[in-house]
Amino acid sequence: MKKLILPLAALAFMASCNNAPKNEASDSNATTETSAATANEGIGVIKFEDAAFDFGSIKEGEVVKHDFIFTNTGNAPVILAQVSASCGCTTPKYTSEPVLPGKEGVITVEFNSENQVGQQQKIITVASNAESNIMTVQLKGTVNPKS
């Protein structure tokens, strides 16, 4: 009988030891999840009304102007750090003040079609502190040669 009690006591002790790390792991996971949730608080999110604008067909030399309007759907201000175009014929101007949650910002793009005959696709890259910190919008269409 004594031979059975010692192994059973050892087994019970080991079983109780195994429960402690599982509880600590569960507590650790809960802490990690809480930390992750806290880390995600305070992030701005850019949502464009339209991420592409097709200006259709124009004659060479015409200037196309379009406003890319976006809303900050996050819960922290969005700051546009840099907005650049893929070509010197395209000039972006943008909101320089922080865009508060729920508010709108704008990126105005001008495309000068001089010497840009044919199908056109101009990419505008937007760098910000938002959740997706690098985004793109595009301007596209066809430029017909001067008559």
Rank of each mutant, 00 (worst) to 15 (best):
Q138L: 07
A85P: 03
L80S: 03
E60R: 01
T136Y: 02
G102A: 04
T31N: 14
Q116F: 01
F48E: 00
L8F: 13
T32I: 15
T34M: 12
T91E: 15
I46G: 00
S147R: 15
N144R: 11
P7D: 01
I58H: 02
Q116D: 05
V109T: 03
K47G: 05
L139I: 07
N23C: 09
K140P: 06
M14P: 04
V45F: 06
G105N: 03
F48M: 01
E33R: 14
A20R: 11
I69M: 08
V63Y: 09
V106I: 12
K146L: 06
S84K: 10
K3N: 13
V45M: 05
S96P: 10
A51N: 04
E131N: 10
T142P: 03
D54K: 07
T95R: 03
E131Q: 14
E62D: 15
V109M: 05
T71P: 04
I43S: 06
H66D: 08
K93T: 15
E49H: 08
A76Y: 01
N75S: 08
C17N: 15
V83G: 01
P145Y: 02
S57E: 15
G141P: 06
S132H: 14
P101L: 06
V78D: 00
Q120E: 08
I79E: 04
T108N: 13
C87G: 10
G42V: 03
A20G: 08
K65E: 15
A10L: 12
E110Y: 05
T108I: 11
H66I: 07
T38Y: 10
I124P: 00
Q121G: 09
C17I: 12
G42N: 04
T136W: 01
A130P: 03
C87W: 11
T125D: 04
A37R: 12
E110G: 05
E60W: 02
S128T: 02
S16M: 15
V45W: 03
E33C: 10
N75H: 09
S28I: 09
G44F: 01
S113Q: 01
V137A: 00
Q120H: 05
E41N: 14
S113C: 04
N19I: 15
A130G: 03
A52G: 06
T32H: 13
V83W: 03
T136H: 04
A30N: 11
A12E: 08
S16H: 12
